[in-house]
Nucleic acid binder design. Sequence first.
DNA 1: GTCTATATCCAGATAGAC
DNA 2: GTCTATCTGGATATAGAC
Lengths: 203, 203
Amino acid sequence: MTDSTKSRERGADKRRRLTAAAARVLHQQGVERTTIADIAHAADVPVGNVYYYFKTKDELVQAALAEHSGYLAELTGELDRLPDPLGRLKALVGTWVGQRDVAARYGCPTGTLAVELDKRAEGDMDLEAGRLIRSLLDWVERQFRELGLPDPGGLAIALVGAYQGMSLLANALRDPEIMTREGNRLTRWLDALPDGAAGHPNP
Amino acid sequence: MTDSTKSRERGADKRRRLTAAAARVLHQQGVERTTIADIAHAADVPVGNVYYYFKTKDELVQAALAEHSGYLAELTGELDRLPDPLGRLKALVGTWVGQRDVAARYGCPTGTLAVELDKRAEGDMDLEAGRLIRSLLDWVERQFRELGLPDPGGLAIALVGAYQGMSLLANALRDPEIMTREGNRLTRWLDALPDGAAGHPNP
DNA sequence: GTCTATATCCAGATAGAC
DNA sequence: GTCTATCTGGATATAGAC
């Protein structure tokens, strides 16, 4: 292994650490209140060095978005290994409930990012957050379609919307139990769906 | 009318204008990105004069919260004049759908404020946003209780959560039609509720 | 490639003239 | 009560030494 290879690997490692720290800290503190120094500290990288890897703060936000996108791809990839679509959707709800504590403290990472980026003037990063949410919606819609239910797109909006809503309420009221109770409700709803209750899946 | 009375009225008027402008601009631009100057300009008040009425930016945020709180009280007060609880809830959904364009552009004022204030370190204003949401939840819960439905608190979380979720999705995807479609779904759900479908009101 | 020192900018807040 | 001029702090970003 040459020196330049080692250097490149260390460089890539720092970049990875910065990306992971950005995703974590931006979620916890919010985009506007997080400074480059905060992220550098969390990643254990000297503050001034950050600009070698990311030319602007916006690039760090982009990297955080990509990180969340990768997490979502990983999650749906695992769920896809389950045999039936209904089981996949119920496992998705289970994942949400499993993250109830972080949701109650900081909200859904994707949802809060979308809200914050919508207010941010620069670039069209709000649209990128929209794309991330859209890709979750698409995956959910595919499951409903496989189940042969009518209006799978509408059902996807209902399910993902319920998730965003319960995350926001759990966060605003600082009560993780809201996630548990609403999760149970969603699971019951999913179970009842194929038997013909598809007419009024809401709220 | 004395001079001091006129003065007081003009002063109160400026304060009112600043409060209204704060509620509007903070919703549109977000708390962190909005400067005192932005609010002063929107209220047509000289920038340096703001500090006579509000000693800190936080006080302006508080005033905006109070403004939203007043709006909510006014809305529920009008709805309370409707004869039956089901009609009140359906009218509430209708109000939400009626605001679909502003929701798709800027999100639900209360919800986005709650998300932003949660990230804001200073004070416990996040809890105040929680109280505002809680007061809406309480009013909704009262309607469900009057209808004699089981678990009115859970139903309130489901309905308000659905509203927050559909607002966030409409905003992230910039699509007001999401509000229309989800509103229809909620109305159908409400209509079906008293007839015994109360078992699975979700998502 | 790494890091320090610093330039630049801008928002919040204040002092004090009118 | 009203408004201007200014202070101050903090954050992004850059220049350049190592």
